[in-house]
Design a protein around this nucleic acid. Structure first.
Lengths: 109, 109
DNA sequence: TTATAATATGAACAAATAAACATATGTTAA
DNA sequence: TTAACATATGTTTATTTGTTCATATTATAA
């Protein structure tokens, strides 16, 4: 990393992280960490509408975080590269380390 | 990383990445990669209003990405832990590798 | 072809939020 | 104290965006 990023780099970086900044997309990405999944599978897993999942998958695909493969009537999605895994892991580490006592405020049970 | 994250983890992760999902905050974080800076310094560097920078610093501090230290009339901000650096680096790597030809659409010059 | 299943997409709505502006708080010096 | 500087914060506005609903597209089977 340079000492001061350019406007373009800041824009590109924020656009990337913005994709990770939604709980639905995080859950979709996490679900695909070990398995290739079709839209219906994901909708069932997350208990969300097909439409909403499809919209989010489109965003994930446009951002190159996810790739798709059609097999008959179904379209299977999977992570596009290992950076997705790395970024998720880094975020998870940060959360685990520094915010153990503070996440409780977001939990009910 | 687990195979399917919980609602709580997805929420916490997305909240974290949401902070990185704004170009102004990215620029602020990048500016602090090597130097401790006060609000006015940052506002001058980024050519933004003091108010806007202060608002963003508050968000960064609340999220534990930044810490502050008062010295006289000035308050100096610096990165709170090394995960910030790691996450930025991961994002930068992803951008450099996969989107070389596509970022041009976001650029004018 | 028609029917059905899986996915994609367009439009509308509501919620979140970044920036601007004005103002308040805090610190130092006179 | 008052004045000046640095920072914080409350409010408003404009923009963005995730979801829902309805509809369109694509693929298979009868």
């Amino acid at each position: 990393m340079k000492e001061a990023c350019t406007m373009e780099e800041a824009g590109a970086l924020s656009e990337l992280f913005k994709i990770f900044g939604d709980p639905t997309r995080i859950r979709i990405l996490c679900a695909m960490l070990d398995a290739e999944l079709c839209v219906n599978d994901i909708a069932g897993l997350l208990q969300m509408s097909q439409s909403s999942v499809s919209h989010q998958l489109r965003i994930l695909k446009t951002s190159k975080l996810v790739k798709s493969r059609r097999d008959g009537k179904s379209v299977f999605y999977s992570l596009d590269d290992e950076h997705v895994h790395s970024i998720l892991s880094m975020g998870m580490e940060h959360i685990m380390e520094g915010e153990q006592g503070e996440n409780d405020k977001n939990l009910q049970n």
